[in-house]
Nucleic acid binder design. Structure first.
Length: 784
DNA sequence: CAGTGAGCGAGCTTCCGCTTGACTT
């Protein structure tokens, strides 16, 4: 055992640092937090000043045991966890668990994994900062209180029996999506007319070039637009003046977790979890620096490296050293920005991670490159028949600079409304007269804010200071898993728009159609998400406030700076919060999210949409009526808030009987697992393109035949009496009894078709007696 | 796999943040 034991959080980091520090140091990883609050009684003794009760989670026992042994065998332990609140707390937990004295144990920190940074850190150890540790404990305890007191309120007050949850981060994330959805639903588009004139002119080489100029303003009505065109009839067009202005563009900062997720989403179409998975691979294979970071900083070594790569590949004038500052106040900057470990690796071989690596390489390189230089030309054009004027503008790239490598993508809401990129203008001269090809006034509609993508939601959360780099992807997954939010596409609808064209001094009127409102891979709130959000907003507006996290973060900072006492801060939060919990439990009604849609024309009974135990539904009639109410499930794309009476009544048309096939009735319906057909007591899932409301017998009958044969082919053997089947699955033959599947031992796989009842029973008993090892028992949810 | 939909209530669920693992029902 080496003289010194250094503990860091990540194993990949341990490996790198181990190489730098040499033989006197053994570097080990603790794999993040090694202790957490126990779950019983929230793991907090509230009466005893919020005293936390920590345990070592099952999956950390092994690591802790190993660390204990190593700590015993070494002369000195160095705590080298990340330099932020969480890292400090991890070091403190290590002290507690390994029996180290916080008053003498060496604590070292570095923001980058480079030789000079680490050697410097080792020369200047400090001690544990208990104020920072206490700030973390306050954070941890507050989150536990909020989560574990709010969630049970939902279990009691919602009419669903899912495992509902609420928390400081996830509930606000859902709220953002719910509010955006309502904003879109309540949005009414207004239109205006935009004038564009198309000219041809000769450039200096006497070549004819077309270009476009824009009208003086947008016209609110078609009459105003027409009047303007009318006033241009017979006009001559002359260049009045030309201004040329230099401009520049600068590169974006190197990647943080959040910006990497955004760019990978915009440019590669990756979900945030896919991005993180690939980044993790690159990190573990030593290709990039740590991928969970909020820092835009590059180490000196990286900057020098980048400079060398730029000068070599593009030449000296393309290089410009830049240091970026973080805009985000909540950043804790324990690491570097995400960058390639070695800039000279321009790409990686692995096809999985290649595209993401290329993106990181380009972004990093571009961040150290020169500005792009532009020249923006604006020409004002006189109209002889009135005193309005047209404006033509164009942009010319004088020096590409960083654009040679990389340009950051834009989100939908940052795009200028419908404007294409500025083209180039021909070289014009003042007083030059121009030929008008045509002038158009096109109707354009205002657009609501776009729905969030996973990545744009992360961006918003980061702006609000909610969540951390390590939790963005898991949070997005959680709110989808809880069925508060779903990611899906939406088909657009056709919308007509009007165009007025002035050509050869005649005005013509046309109508064209565009597709509007189409969405791809966007986050939509479910009815459940909306109802839970409304409930939490109503009773817990404090926690649901967008500024709540920012507010408590400043208090955590005060604790970290020794200006506030952690359990007093918790006490101030807890008392009113807990009282509110009690009041809500006592007084709030059970929530159904009921919406009255109108009366059923057939029976005259009221039709309501609401949340049932099994999800959103519509109901005709009341429970107290003599005749039982009728129920129907809402379709995937429908919502309690927006469904109309007509759409609701349509839902009651199922189940439909299609007719007879092979002497049995065929009917279709929508069940727990989607649309299905029923025939001869057996069920067949309908194909995606089959609509249960319109599908006919001649489409369903072949499906029944097809599925029946497929099933026969999958069946190897059936023991009817024992309800045992031997089936062929994607991993080879297996045994099925009732609903349970059993693995056939390797040695019998090849002779699976020859198994007798007795042998099959023996295998079942054997598997039951020795169940296969379960993985990650602590956190794994049982499959549904 | 393919019903259901009131209320009661067995016994269960739940947070955020730090880290990777594992061998298919």
């Amino acid at each position: 055992m080496a003289k010194n034991l250094v503990i860091v959080e990540s194993p990949a980091k341990a490996k790198t640092i181990g190489k730098i520090l040499g033989n006197d140091f053994e570097v080990q990883s603790c794999y993040g937090h090694i202790r957490d609050l126990e779950k019983d009684d929230m793991g907090i003794d509230i009466q005893d000043n919020f005293k936390p009760k920590y345990i070592i989670p099952e999956d950390k026992e092994k690591v802790v045991k190993e660390l204990k042994k190593m700590a015993k065998d070494t002369e000195e332990v160095w705590l080298a966890t990340d330099e932020d609140r969480e890292g400090e707390a991890i070091s403190w937990h290590l002290c507690e668990v390994l029996g180290l004295d916080p008053a003498s144990t060496k604590r070292i920190v570095f923001h980058e994994i480079t030789k000079p940074a680490i050697e410097k850190a080792v020369k200047h150890p400090r001690l544990l900062d208990m104020n920072l540790v206490n700030a973390q404990q306050a954070r941890r305890i507050l989150d536990r209180i909020v989560g574990f007191e709010l969630s049970p309120v939902l279990w009691r007050k919602m009419s669903m029996r899912n495992s509902l949850s609420a928390g400081r981060v996830q509930s606000v994330a859902v709220r953002l999506i719910v509010e955006r959805e309502r904003e879109i639903n309540h949005f009414t588009a207004t239109s205006s007319f935009k004038v564009e004139a198309f000219f041809t002119a000769k450039d200096i080489n006497n070549k004819s070039i077309s270009f476009k100029a824009e009208g003086p303003n947008k016209f609110k009505t078609v009459e105003d637009a027409e009047k303007f065109l009318q006033n241009c009839v017979g006009a001559a067009y002359t260049v009045k003046d030309i201004t040329v202005k230099p401009g520049k563009k600068s590169p974006a900062a190197p990647f943080t977790t959040s910006t990497l997720q955004q760019e990978a989403s915009r440019k590669l179409g990756y979900s945030v979890s896919k991005t993180m998975l690939l980044a993790q691979k690159l990190y573990e294979s030593g290709k990039i620096t740590y991928m969970r970071t909020d820092s835009v900083n590059l180490s000196e070594t990286a900057m020098t490296d980048a400079q060398a790569a730029i000068v070599k590949n593009y030449g000296d004038k393309y290089h410009q050293a830049r240091k970026f500052k973080n805009k985000n106040e909540s950043a804790q900057e324990a690491h570097e920005a995400i960058r390639p470990t070695y800039m000279e690796n321009t790409s990686v071989d692995d096809s999985d991670t290649k595209r993401l690596y290329d993106l990181i390489w380009k972004r990093t390189i571009a961040s150290q490159m020169a500005d792009a230089e532009l020249e923006k030309t604006t020409a004002k054009i006189d109209i002889s028949t009135n005193h309005e004027e047209l404006t033509a503008s164009g942009e010319v790239l004088k020096f590409d600079g960083f654009l040679k490598v990389y340009l950051e993508g834009k989100d939908e809401d940052e795009e200028e409304d419908g404007d294409e990129k500025e083209g180039t203008l021909p070289t014009l001269a003042v007083k030059q007269s121009l030929d008008l090809k045509e002038m158009k006034a096109t109707e354009r509609f205002t657009r609501p804010a776009p729905r969030y993508t996973e990545a744009s939601l992360v961006k918003k959360l980061e702006e609000l200071g909610i969540g951390r780099p390590s939790t963005y992807a898991p949070t997005i997954t959680t709110i989808q898993k809880r069925n508060y939010v779903e990611k899906r596409d939406k088909e657009g609808v056709k919308r007509d728009f009007r165009i007025l064209t002035l050509k050869s001094d005649k005005i013509s009127k046309d109508t064209d159609a565009e597709n509007t409102g189409a969405e791809k891979a966007k986050l939509f709130p479910t009815d459940l998400g909306m109802i839970v959000t409304d409930f939490l907003n109503q009773y817990f507006n404090n926690v649901m406030d967008y500024g709540f996290t920012a507010k408590i973060e400043t208090e955590f900072d005060e604790i970290a700076h020794g200006k506030k006492v952690w359990n007093k801060m918790l006490n101030d939060f807890y008392n009113p919060f807990h009282e509110n919990i009690q009041n809500t439990l006592e007084n709030a009604e059970r929530v159904k999210g009921e919406h009255f849609l109108g009366d059923d024309p057939d029976s005259g009974k009221p039709v309501v949409a609401r949340m049932g135990r099994y999800g959103p539904m519509v109901q005709i009639g009341k429970a107290e009526d003599e005749e039982k109410p009728r129920f129907a499930k809402l379709k995937q794309t429908q919502s309690i808030e927006t469904i109309t009476l007509a759409e609701a009544l349509e839902l009651f048309k199922l189940p439909r009987v299609l007719g007879m096939f092979e002497d049995s009735e065929v009917s279709v319906n929508i069940g727990r697992f989607g649309p299905y057909a029923q025939h001869d007591k057996k069920f067949y899932s309908l194909k995606k393109e089959m609509d249960p409301y319109t599908v006919e017998l001649d489409e369903v009958a072949p499906l029944i035949v097809e599925k029946r044969t497929a099933k026969d082919e999958r069946t190897i053997k059936v023991f009817e009496k024992e309800k045992i089947q031997i089936l062929k699955g994607p991993y080879g033959p297996y045994i099925k009894q009732g609903l349970r599947n059993f693995k056939i031992p390797k040695e019998k796989i090849d002779s699976a078709a020859d198994l007798t009842v007795e042998e099959a029973k023996a295998i079942i008993e054997d598997v039951k007696a020795n169940p296969p090892k379960k993985k990650a028992p602590a956190r794994k949810k049982k499959a549904e």
